[in-house]
Design a protein around this nucleic acid. Structure first.
Length: 495
RNA sequence: GCCCCCAUCGUCUAGAGGCCUAGGACACCUCCCUUUCACGGAGGCGGCAGGGGUUCGAAUCCCCUUGGGGGUACCA
């Protein structure tokens, strides 16, 4: 869907041919309170694409100011996940918690200029206020009660030993407007922001407490020279608040793009509680980075028709723009991801696939002593039937270790003439195995035993692989012959 | 409750007032290939949320309704 051109042409990026004068600097700013999430990764993709499209920088900032929930393991997951996806970032990772001096300075400046003030209200007082609002069916909002305290009142609170938060003034009459790269003109009313917002946590009244999200984000984005803020639409209300902070801090405003959210099956924002949502999880299941990237692009962005539906990050970066980013959220669809992943796997050659499968075979405790070319041949044989890499474990199992025959296979061997045919196959093995010779063996066995060839083929498959379904019989046979397993298995089946 | 956003097949989407008898992809169904399962190939099913306008003409523009989502922290 195209973005409508506003009546006042304020933004240059609506013109796709425009060359960016200022170099583009964007960032992804995850908080390490969970593993790298699909939603975060998709936002990262859009940022990365935009940066690469315009020859700008894509930066990474870890927002770890929530000390309670932030964990190092999650930071690791985010870093390795982004690297695995190929979303390489420029410059060093910025760690927000190490920038508190800057945050404090900004808060002090806002305090000094009177754009922020200390609020001494206690939690009990605030709770009482909220309850009253709830009872009166009113929107919960702060009543700015300490916005204009007299020196005497302040002195009194301090004498009481009250701690204070720092609040940033938000005038109800403020009209906040911006041009969103995805949504076009956006407008917010100061009155709808819930009153003066807290920018520093509660602390003794002579100190400045820990900075809060909106303040830290703005200070850091200014410091990092961020030109375009690209994030999920769940941040729209934050943008209104942050715009006010840019003004108050005397900094130029970046551009904003609010991307549609990834929705779960129920159509709600995808969250950690929706099961498999972290990049780590997808990776463990055997989804490859190229397929995940491809899918994340498709969820919310429609590539120009020339590009088709299957493409890599570089191809997307060459044509990416927010003019083709959708406004409505998109449901996560396993079927489509599975298709994309299977396409990626089917396109892999035996060597690549073998390298991807080998660690999984090992992890499953399978025998991997075969020569590498043999393993590559096996991988190539299995390839077309894989949806995820992990499928290649169970499917390889009967080739890597001698299988138990399943019920259907046992039943197959009991069919009249089947065993006789297998004996014939076993007794008339050619000097050298070739596909043609193997095929001839089957024909001859069928003739000798007086049964249909299909029955012999099923019988051989049952004896060789222990089940009735699988890749091409002759190719499977050839593979097993390669490790000397065909004879023994046929014999075992006849016992 | 209040504020904001969104609305085309089951899902992801194309669509910028006539090119639309609404196109593609996934899923599903059928057939072909294959003496198995897949892969692959060819077809098929299926949609503009509803109602009003504007217009010679509306999926497209406007309004209302309905539905869905997001936000409403001393989280990020």
């Amino acid at each position: 869907m195209r973005v409508r051109i506003p009546s006042v042409p304020l933004v240059k990026w609506f013109n796709p041919s425009h060359d960016y004068q200022v170099s583009v600097r964007v960032r992804i700013a995850p908080s390490p309170t969970g593993k790298l999430h699909m939603g975060t990764a998709r936002t990262a993709v859009f940022n990365w694409l935009f940066a690469r499209r315009h020859g700008g920088q894509f930066l990474l900032r870890i927002e770890d100011t929530d000390r309670e929930r932030s964990q190092k393991v999650f930071t690791d997951s985010i870093l390795t996940g982004l690297r695995w996806l190929g979303l390489d970032w420029d410059e060093d990772v910025v760690v927000q918690s190490r920038r508190s001096r800057d945050h404090q300075k900004a808060i002090a400046a806002l305090l000094a200029s009177g754009q922020a003030y200390r609020c001494y209200a206690t939690e009990a007082e605030l709770n009482a206020m909220r309850e009253a609002q709830q009872a009166a069916q009113q929107a919960p909002r702060h009543d700015n009660r300490h916005r204009n305290l007299s020196p005497e009142q302040i002195a009194a609170f301090r004498k009481e030993g009250r701690h204070a938060v720092v609040r940033f003034r938000i005038d109800d009459t403020q009209d906040i407007v911006w041009q969103d790269m995805v949504r076009g003109p956006m407008r917010w009313q100061g009155a709808d922001l819930g009153g003066d917002m807290v920018i520093a946590r509660r602390a003794p009244a002579h100190q400045i407490g820990d900075p809060l999200y909106n303040l830290a984000v703005v200070v850091d984005d200014i410091a990092m020279g961020i030109t375009h803020v690209i994030r999920g639409e769940d941040h729209i209300a934050n943008t209104a608040k942050q715009l006010l902070l840019y003004n108050a801090l005397g900094a130029p405003q970046p551009s904003f793009a609010h991307t549609p959210l990834i929705l779960n099956r129920e159509g709600r924002k995808l969250s950690k509680r929706d099961g498999v949502t972290s990049i780590d999880d997808f990776r463990a299941l055997g989804y490859v980075a190229s397929a995940i990237n491809n899918y994340m692009c498709l969820l919310g962005w429609s590539p120009p028709t020339e590009l088709g539906e299957r493409f890599d990050l570089a191809e997307a970066a060459a044509v990416f723009g927010f003019d083709r980013v959708n406004k409505a959220g998109g449901r996560f669809d396993w079927d489509k991801l599975n298709w994309l992943n299977s396409q990626a796997l089917h396109a892999m050659d035996g060597a690549t696939l073998r390298d991807a499968l080998l660690p999984r075979w090992r992890q499953a405790g399978l025998n991997t002593d075969q020569p590498q070319p043999w393993q590559e041949q096996l991988a190539a044989l299995l390839g077309p039937s894989l949806v995820v890499l992990q499928d290649g474990v169970e499917q390889a199992r009967p080739f890597l270790s001698r299988p138990e025959l399943d019920d259907a296979s046992c039943a197959q061997l009991q069919i009249k003439g089947c065993r006789a045919a297998l004996r014939h196959v076993l007794q008339h093995r050619p000097e050298t195995f070739t596909l043609a010779a193997a095929k001839e063996q089957l024909t001859a066995a069928a003739r000798a035993a007086g049964v249909k060839k299909g029955l012999v083929m099923k019988g051989v498959r049952a004896a060789l692989l222990g089940c009735l379904h699988g890749p091409d019989l002759l190719l499977s046979w050839e593979l097993l012959h390669g490790v000397g397993e065909d004879g023994p298995r046929l014999q075992a089946a006849l016992r």
